[in-house]
């Protein structure tokens, strides 16, 4: 009997049907290690979620939560009645969509190009130089480009006029502004974005390239049939993540590049929230818009994840 019980116990352990306490006892060191990130997530990611309640309260900083009354969905109703909200929403989707079309492939192409460079030192220097704009604040970038592209005194337009051309309103006419906005964004973030793709490319097995060379494949063929398929999953994950951010837009970039002539296109959700919510001290409006943004972002992430799985990729969830 005793022997049988013992063996049963062992078998049990092997098939993993022990209680939670068993594992806790056995691996308590690991659980304690896990505690730190859990507490971190709790304090910095979950606790702030309490603030979402502001969206449903008549909240004012002077009275605090004490005096705030429950107002249900009034803040949301007010937002959905505002014409400016829809303009901001449209612009956010438009600017992010353009960024996705122009800005998303750019680092991939650049990473592949960098990968093809033979001279190691030249490659490293180029890479570093391309990163640099990422570390500049948007305030500085906007300052530089307004100086360079100003219609009458900007260096670029002075040059164009000197060679007999017409001054181009790069930042002072809305359609031109749209193009400038995208290209300045590409210039700023492209180098930084290559890091992850270069890492993925480094992970590709060199034998594949050798075999392809033996088969007589040229550079184009190797890129097309080896490099790209090998980094496909990375690309898909990055794409899903950027789709999740389709309604999230940084504040600095549109705000610093903005001027009254292009407000039609440059007023996005973040600047709208800043103006209508924060500057006007209507924190419930600001919170409600933020909540709306997050919900839409979440839907996009789920949808694109589903789509990726349909395409035979792993997805991220």
């Amino acid at each position: 009997m005793k022997v049988k019980e013992k063996t049963e116990g062992k078998i049990k352990a092997k098939t993993g049907k022990n209680g939670f306490m068993y594992y806790l006892k056995r691996d308590w060191q690991l659980y304690i290690l896990l505690l730190f990130p859990l507490v971190f997530a709790l304090v910095f990611k979950f606790l702030p979620l309490l603030g979402l309640s502001v969206a449903f309260l008549d909240y004012d900083v002077v009275g605090g939560f004490e005096r705030a009354k429950f107002i249900g969905f009034d803040a949301f109703i007010e937002i959905f009645k505002m014409k400016d909200f829809y303009i901001a929403l449209r612009n956010t989707i438009m600017l992010n969509g353009l960024d996705l079309i122009v800005g998303f492939p750019a680092p991939i192409i650049l990473a592949i190009l960098l990968n093809e460079i033979r001279n190691k030192y030249f490659k490293r220097v180029t890479q570093t130089v391309l990163y640099l704009p990422h570390f500049l604040s948007w305030v500085i970038i906007a300052g530089i480009f307004y100086q360079l592209l100003s219609p009458s005194t900007g260096y670029v337009n002075v040059l164009i006029q000197r060679y007999g051309g017409e001054s181009i309103p790069f930042l002072t006419e809305k359609w031109h502004w749209l193009v400038s906005y995208c290209l300045i964004g590409v210039w700023q973030s492209m180098g930084w974005g290559t890091i992850i793709y270069l890492a993925a490319i480094t992970g590709i097995n060199g034998d594949l390239y050798e075999a392809a060379t033996v088969d007589g494949a040229g550079r184009w063929r190797k890129i097309w049939y080896i490099t790209l398929p090998c980094i496909r999953s990375t690309i898909v994950v990055m794409l899903i993540m950027s789709l999740g951010r389709i309604l999230g837009i940084s504040f600095e970039r549109p705000y610093t590049l903005d001027n009254p002539l292009v407000r039609d296109f440059s007023d996005v959700i973040s600047t709208f929230v800043y103006r209508v919510g924060l500057q006007s001290h209507r924190y419930n409006i600001a919170t409600a818009v933020g909540l709306f943004q997050s919900v839409v972002g979440l839907i996009f992430v789920f949808a694109s994840d589903k789509f990726a799985k349909l395409m035979g990729e792993d997805g991220i969830i």
């Binding site: 009254p260 407000r263 039609d264 007023d267 103006r275 006007s280």
Partner: peptide, 17 residues
Amino acid sequence: LSTYGETLKSKWEVIQV
């Protein structure tokens, strides 16, 4: 004035130009 002030200021910038 405090509710709409900032919105109107932003509109005014565009309109005056």
